[in-house]
Design a protein around this nucleic acid. Structure first.
Length: 561
RNA sequence: CGGGGUGUAGCGCAGCCCGGUUAGCGCGCUUCGUUCGGGACGAAGAGGUCGGGAGUUCGAAUCUCCCCACCCCGACCA
């Protein structure tokens, strides 16, 4: 493609609305333009990359027996009501104003609808149905460029099986296919076991990429591959001690001592001798949560332990509940339910609040003094703690979810009555699986992982072009003739070439544009080298440059690409 | 939805606090000339409902009120 005739609006300056590297690069290199919050137009160069990603996904989905569909984005609301998901999605679901339609945020219902009455025998299964299509979600806050949009491209696949055993097989096929897809795209990713939430299924895995732009926080062990959302992650941590001798509880005057740090400083004790108190309200009833030292309560873990409705207590409620303000609350004399983190199990000689302002109590033996205490894992894993599997060091960081695979089970088939007959003529609901990949997220994650201060660094699989051919000074006849010939030759060799044939742009400008756009190889045709029958070949990734005989160019490129 | 910020030429910004000619600057764009291997130079140009509405005032980009859009943090996130 000729740059002089292409719409590739590169920008020298950083657009105000872009903050994260991938978003900045997409806009600066003319790949994408924003239309509205969370809604983007893919420009030709960007769409070329999108198509390459989609092709890789297609090849790998077809390889496991997937059949490509194209489901409608516009769906009758009625079907969504039958599965209760109009309510479940709430404001996230886009509603059409002048007809009873919704814009599909995913397609379980539609797959089940078409399977009904059509996939009727155990002989009709297994099936893998997938599509690559635009999805709509009314995100309350779109952000991070294309990473969280209101309209986005998703590959979604659905499996239909007769049994949970067969679903396991379909799930494993997708697990393997996903790894191939992300490997081929050149991404560094990891896999997290996750809870499947409102999708309504059992087992699920998330494929994730480490990134500050991510929306999830995960704990990851490089050594053994343990990865978990911090909402559920666990680590090896040291329990509070149980000393041979339990001191009797005694009150200590601690004027103006509120935090654990202050308490340790005031009493010259170690954090591990203290229990921090947090009060929550669970379905209207106060609960005291005790944590060892300065450990933070993990509210997701707390939520799943307690169930129901949990909120942290307002400061002005504390006095009435406990008799003291924050900083002086503790288990002794607390009149409601008390739960504690596992690390505090049966600890003694602890210091904690006295439920009386400016007083703490020492010599607390949880076994003896607070016998009703229930113990759970309630703490949040932090970077540097040890992995529960291999005892190596865990790292906690933000990550972007690229793909998610679920074992759905029979939720949708039962809701919509999608049944088949087994070999004994007995009726069963079809067992479904659901598997998504965010196409733009692959794009954004690739950029997050492959750029430098000059711009994008493409590798062959996703690069919109293999080669950027730069004709320097296209007003010079030698350069024009030679570069036109090279352009034709390279294309005949089967390379995708972006030819910078602009006549009105200086050399430096072309070099910088080429580095910004980031094709893996640059072929630079200038008067200086052409007069010796040579061109310069530059590798974008390493900035390695070599002068190559024109006659040897094809051989050289074969080595490089 | 809570908190913070921004909105002035295609892009990036100044001007606003303290109202007063014809609203500026850089980049980009057009024309001509020069230059031609690391974001060239000169000259001449085009381009603006100052986000929208209402108000205060002799006079509003500037002050007041309402609304909208976009960005960031949080909540939310099958």
């Amino acid at each position: 493609m000729r740059l002089s005739k292409s719409f590739i609006p590169t920008l020298k300056e950083v657009p105000a609305e872009a903050v994260i590297p991938s978003h900045i690069l997409m806009i600066r290199s003319g790949l994408v333009r924003q239309l509205s919050a969370g809604i983007y137009t893919w420009l030709p160069l960007g769409y070329k990359v999108i198509r390459k990603i989609m092709d890789i996904i297609r090849e790998e989905m077809n390889a496991i027996g997937g059949q490509e569909f194209h489901y409608p984005a516009l769906n009758p609301k009625e079907i969504w009501e039958q599965t209760g998901r109009v309510e479940a999605f709430g404001d996230i679901l886009f509603h059409i104003k002048n007809r009873e339609y919704v814009l599909a945020p995913t397609h379980e219902e539609i797959v089940a609808y078409h399977a009904k009455g059509a996939v009727v025998s155990y002989k009709d299964m297994p099936q893998i149905w997938y599509q690559i299509q635009t999805k709509f979600r009314n995100e309350p806050r779109p952000r991070s460029g294309v990473i969280r949009g209101r309209q986005f491209i998703m590959k979604d696949a659905y499996t239909l099986d007769r049994s949970f055993e067969d679903l396991d097989k379909a799930y494993d096929l997708h697990d393997k296919a996903y790894r191939k897809i992300f490997d081929r795209c050149g991404l560094k990713y990891f896999v997290v076991g996750a809870s499947s939430g409102a999708m309504g299924g059992s087992k699920s895995e998330e494929f994730m990429v480490k990134s500050d732009a991510g929306e999830d926080t995960v704990a990851y062990c490089e050594k053994c591959g343990y990865a978990a959302n911090v909402e559920v992650a666990q680590s090896v941590s040291t329990n509070a001690k149980r000393h041979n001798e339990s001191k009797p509880p005694y009150e200590i005057s601690t004027p103006n001592v509120k935090s654990i740090d202050e308490l340790c400083e005031f009493l010259k004790i170690d954090e591990h001798e203290t229990a921090k108190s947090r009060v929550y309200v669970h379905d209207g009833v106060p609960v005291l949560v005790l944590m060892l030292g300065n450990d933070e309560v993990n509210e997701s873990k707390l939520g799943s332990v307690l169930g129901g409705n949990v909120r942290s207590c307002h400061p002005d409620e504390l006095k009435e509940i406990s008799g003291a303000d924050a900083g002086s609350i503790g288990p002794i004399g607390f009149k409601y339910r008390i739960i504690a983190d596992n690390l505090l199990k049966d600890a003694n000689n602890l210091y904690s609040g006295a439920n009386k302002n400016d007083y703490h109590i020492g010599g607390i033996d949880l076994q003896r003094d607070v016998p009703g205490t229930e113990y759970f894992d309630l703490r949040t894993v932090e970077s540097g703690e040890k992995c529960t599997r291999c005892n190596s060091t865990l790292e906690v960081f933000k990550a972007i979810e690229l793909g998610h695979i679920f074992k759905l089970g029979t939720k949708y088939s039962e809701a919509l009555g999608v049944m088949y007959l087994d070999e004994h003529g007995k009726e069963h609901p079809i067992v479904m699986g659901s598997y998504g990949i965010g196409v733009e997220r692959i794009f954004a994650c690739y950029l997050e992982q492959n750029y430098d201060d000059k711009g994008i660094i493409w590798k062959k699989p996703l690069s919109p072009f293999d080669i950027q051919l730069i004709g320097l000074n296209m007003k010079n006849a030698t350069v024009t003739e030679a570069s036109e010939k090279i352009y034709n030759d390279l294309q005949k060799q089967g390379y995708e070439v972006l030819f910078d044939d602009r006549t009105d742009v200086s050399a430096g400008f072309k070099f910088n544009d080429a580095d910004l756009l980031g094709m893996p190889v640059q072929v630079i045709a200038g008067e200086k080298n052409l007069k010796d029958g040579k061109v310069e070949v530059k590798l974008r990734a390493t900035n390695e440059k070599q002068i190559v005989e024109l006659s040897n160019l094809n051989v050289k490129l074969k080595e490089l690409i």
